[in-house]
Simulated assay, not measured.
Amino acid sequence: MKTIKILCLHGKGTSAEIFKAQTVSFRQLMKDSIHLDFHFVDGPLDTSAAAGIDLFYGPPYYAFWEEENATETQAAQTWLADLIAESGPFDGVMMFSQGCILGASMLLRHQIQNPHQPPPFKFAIFICGGAPLREMESLGYSIAPNVWERDRLSKYALHYKAGLSAILSQGSARWTEVDTSITAEDLAEEITGPSGSCPIKIPSVHIYGSKDPRYYSGMQLANLFDKQTRRTYDHQGGHEIPRTEAISRKIMDLVNWAAISGVGYDG
């Protein structure tokens, strides 16, 4: 049986072990499915815990960068390229939060600068991700001012809702519905690609929650990928990976679809 190797990139202020725990509910359902090898890695930088994470998980905590700017994100991409050269190749990549921005940045830069070369991954799974706005700006994308403001406010709201005080006082009720009146088409019009740019065509899965303050950023991330080779799923929660059986089985199906579509798996 062919093994499909998937690199797993965690969120800021967590770790490989934490990402393992966050994804175990759907990964354990795959025992009788196709053979997927999930390769979890720690980010290169020591950091403090993400908001509220230390209530559930102990240190150490890692990040791919502290500030999302051109210098630090490029250093993270160099680190990732070195990791792929040393421990890869990887068939696909599965990411959460900051890990999504790193993976999307590498895929997008490759699409713009090396369109005729094979991409670094054959498929991608984004969980609670966001559009890599700084990377997009550096690559020539035109981004409307309201996108930057919405991005800023969503990060602030996420930090508040994920914080220790909100968890202890409100629990899961801290995740409240966001205004979902802006459509994917509206969001697409807020960002314009440089001349010659086109959607990323590898199979991609975009999992986000309609109660996540970063909901719209996740939709804008999905817009970077071709409609014909992407699937989206709203788990209707917050900035998290819900662990109910129904949601876990849905995510499992999406991961299987991406892996099979990406590598042409035939058993």
Rank of each mutant, 00 (worst) to 15 (best):
N256K: 11
S172E: 10
D82H: 11
W79E: 07
R150G: 14
G11K: 02
M136R: 00
F26D: 14
N146Q: 15
T23S: 06
E66V: 05
G103R: 05
D37F: 10
M94K: 07
I53T: 08
I34Q: 12
W65V: 00
Q77H: 13
L102N: 08
L224W: 12
S165M: 14
T180E: 15
R231C: 09
V255Y: 05
T180A: 15
D91G: 05
P242A: 05
D226C: 01
D179M: 09
R134L: 09
D234L: 09
Y156N: 02
V205A: 11
M252I: 04
R231P: 01
P213R: 11
F126W: 05
Q28K: 05
A63S: 13
S165L: 13
P242D: 15
A70T: 04
A49L: 03
P119L: 15
M136I: 04
A166W: 08
F126D: 00
A75S: 09
D226T: 06
I182Y: 10
E68L: 02
L139Y: 02
W148Q: 13
R230H: 11
I18F: 05
L153D: 09
S169A: 12
R152E: 06
E135T: 11
M136V: 04
L102C: 13
G193V: 01
L158R: 02
P115M: 07
M106W: 11
M219Q: 12
I202L: 06
E177C: 12
V255Q: 04
I167S: 04
D151K: 07
T78Q: 07
D37Y: 13
S87F: 11
R174A: 01
Q170D: 12
D37K: 02
F123T: 03
A162P: 04
S217A: 06
G218S: 14
N69I: 05
Q28L: 05
R231G: 02
H235R: 03
I18W: 09
R243L: 06
L164H: 14
L7W: 13
M136Q: 08
P132A: 07
H206D: 08
E185W: 14
E185L: 15
F64N: 11
A50I: 10
E137C: 00
R174T: 00
Y233N: 07
A85S: 10
N69Y: 01
S25P: 03
G262R: 09
G52L: 08
L29N: 09
L107T: 00
R243S: 04
S138D: 04
R27F: 02
G171L: 01
H235T: 12
L133W: 04
I191E: 13
D212C: 06
I101H: 05
Q117R: 05
V147Y: 14
Q28D: 14
